[in-house]
């Protein structure tokens, strides 16, 4: 028991330490590495708290995908001193941001410390409602049924995020392929990894998404792995992204939220209302949404990493 407490204390100190180190880091590259390390340590914190679903999401999206996007930004900003200094907030803005973060953190800490001893919990009520859904993972049941609207909005936000990135493109580049062109590597370690990892990684990505019904996992975690299995051959120059006007790419990004919305609207007719599942059909419908969403998360994340179109469209 004390060993566990000691581990938790060390973990908490390590998270705070790496977070402070990230803020104090002089170079952008070091700051991004610090951010990724903080995210991975945070993943261990979630595991210690028993929230394996959150841990997987933090590792895949918080540390992994966001880390890749930030690293990419650092590489793209090299030499752009004017742009960097124009975008750097002033001392007063940073002080205000620090004050805001400290007061939110302080309020949260106060809230946690002043909880009544048996903390109020809706876990019993949530678990009682999950049985008819046929899902073994209570987290998935809460996300897909009790808080279905939140999850639907999360799914739609992804589409808007891709739109926001794409709208950064200059007018004359619209219709081109997203992101820079990487030199094709026929030999070497990266090219080898990009050839041997995707077959394994795609199976693991689908597995993580599928197993989310009964164990920790799900569409966001699995979709991130699938996106990584596309990003790898892209960086090795083996594949090129489709044009942003390609209807198949757009369909892939939109199919998840569209399926979710369609099932939700069908609830008005076949069940009790918006996002309600007809009795007996809850699990197949949830699996359908999860499958479509996995595809959309993968496509959207890959597009977020690739960035806006950077080349003029070939006529």
């Amino acid at each position: 028991m004390t060993a566990g407490l000691l581990l938790d204390l060390l973990l908490a100190l390590a998270v705070l330490g790496t977070a402070a180190w990230t803020l104090a880091a002089r170079s952008q590259f070091a700051a991004v590495i610090g951010f990724v390390v903080t995210g991975l340590l945070l993943t261990l914190v979630w595991v210690r708290l028993g929230a394996v679903d959150v841990a997987l999401t933090e590792a895949a999206i918080g540390a992994g995908a966001t880390g890749v996007i930030l690293l990419y930004v650092v590489a793209r900003l090299r030499g752009g001193e004017a742009e960097i200094s124009a975008a750097t907030p002033s001392r007063a803005q940073r002080a205000l941001a620090a004050l805001l973060a400290l007061s939110v953190g302080g309020a949260l800490a106060y809230g946690v410390l002043s909880l009544p001893d048996p903390a109020p919990s809706l876990a019993e009520a949530a678990l009682a409602g999950t049985a008819p859904l046929g899902l073994g993972n209570p987290v998935s049941a809460v996300l897909m049924a009790h808080r279905g609207l939140d999850t639907l909005l999360e799914a739609i936000v992804l589409v808007f995020a891709v739109l926001a990135v794409w709208s950064m493109a200059a007018d004359h580049r619209w219709g081109g392929r997203p992101g820079p062109v990487f030199q094709r590597e026929e030999h070497g370690p990266l090219s080898l990894l990009a050839r041997i990892l995707p077959p394994v990684g795609i199976v693991i990505g689908i597995y993580i998404a599928w197993v989310g019904a009964d164990s920790p996992g799900g569409k966001f975690q699995g979709g991130t792995i699938l996106a990584a299995m596309w990003v790898l051959p892209w960086i090795a120059g083996l594949v090129r992204p489709p044009s942003v006007t390609d209807w198949r790419l757009r369909l892939m990004i939109a199919i998840g939220p569209l399926t979710f919305l369609a099932v939700g609207l069908a609830g008005f007719v076949v069940a009790e209302g918006f996002l309600a599942y007809p009795p007996g059909f809850a699990k197949p419908l949830i699996l359908l949404i999860e499958a479509a969403m996995t595809l959309s998360v993968a496509a959207a994340l890959a597009c977020l990493i690739a960035g806006p179109p950077e080349r003029r469209r070939r006529a």
């Binding site: 370690p189 990894l193 990892l197």
Partner: peptide, 16 residues
């Protein structure tokens, strides 16, 4: 196996 493959590739790339 996956960590070994990933680690070996990263080590090669950093070395290069």
């Amino acid at each position: 196996v996956l960590v070994v493959i990933g680690g070996a590739t990263a080590a090669q790339l950093i070395g290069a």
